[in-house]
């Protein structure tokens, strides 16, 4: 698996898009820091961008990589390599190269600004961790979609829908249901609804760490009240891990049964 990972990774970090993605974060990091002049505020702004953008890029890159390397995958399948190694290797290759663009792209401006001497370093670190988690989650979801759909257009469509649903529609539905059922106790419902969406989950995770109650929103507040900051933090981290393990497992299951 490590060999496949090495080659996928090597192939990807030389692709133009990895650099575009990297440069985007680099530029954004610098611009935010110079406009804001405040590390904590920059972290919050970044969070709002990352939790929407990272899932989008993860899904698109994942699905694009799978379809583009389809024939190559067939070549690998004829080599003496385990099936699971091929797909895990490719998946981790995509997810790690994307995470690297994110971590290095944002890391450079923040280090230049002097984050390593600031108290915000842990907030910033958590931001990078949850960004990487989101990359892992959405890339694996993209691989599941791609493996299930031979038709590229359909695959792309489902992937975009998935992103749209998780990043935009889900919150809308959530808010609407809160308004609709406002006469009922909604704590448990909103807790579960948050756990079921990795985008919301990482938002809550970061805001719990930043301890800004004003920005927590309804779910965040319920979360904090219910679990306390510490337990809530670890629970959301745990749920993010589940969100990454389950699709990866499903991906493996599909790959074992698929014909090429």
């Amino acid at each position: 698996m490590l060999k496949i990972l090495k080659y996928s990774f090597y192939d990807l970090i030389r692709s133009r898009w990895s650099y575009v993605y990297f440069l985007f974060y680099l530029l954004m990091g610098f611009v935010l820091l110079f406009l804001n002049n405040d590390l904590s505020k920059a972290v919050i702004t970044l969070m709002n961008i990352i939790i929407v953008l990272v899932p989008l890029i993860g899904t698109i890159f994942g699905i694009m990589y799978y379809y583009n390397s389809k024939e190559f995958t067939e070549l690998l399948l004829a080599q003496p390599i385990k099936r699971s190694s091929i797909f895990m290797g490719q998946y981790l290759g995509v997810a790690l190269s994307l995470s690297m663009s994110l971590v290095i792209g944002l890391g450079i401006p923040f280090f230049v600004y002097g984050i390593n001497t600031s108290v915000a370093i842990w907030d910033f670190g958590l931001l990078l961790v949850s960004g990487s988690m989101l990359t892992l989650i959405f890339t694996s979801l993209a691989f599941v979609i791609a493996l299930k759909n031979e038709n590229k257009i359909k695959g792309f469509g489902y992937a975009i829908l998935l992103w749209l649903f998780m990043a935009v529609i889900y919150d809308g539905l959530f808010l609407m249901s809160l308004m609709f059922f406002e006469d009922y106790p909604l704590d448990k419902f909103s807790l579960i609804a948050t756990l079921l969406n990795p985008v919301d989950l990482s938002r809550v995770l970061i805001l719990l760490k930043l301890d800004i109650s004003a920005l927590l929103g309804y779910t965040g507040a319920v979360f904090q009240q219910f679990f306390g900051t510490r337990l809530g933090f670890f629970l959301s981290l745990f749920m993010l891990t589940v969100w990454f393990i389950v699709p990866t497992f499903i991906m493996q299951r599909i790959a074992m049964k698929k014909d090429f």
């Binding site: 080659y7 192939d11 583009n68 024939e71 080599q79 003496p80 390599i81 099936r83």
Partner: peptide
């Protein structure tokens, strides 16, 4: 999967990862 060490297979469609050079691909296989 180990038995594939004893088979040489030429697939119908030759399509390889675009960012690698020919030599790198040969070394990789």
């Amino acid at each position: 999967w180990n038995y594939r060490n004893n088979i040489d297979y030429l697939p119908q469609i030759a399509n390889f990862p675009g960012n690698l050079s020919v030599q790198e691909l040969i070394n990789m296989i």
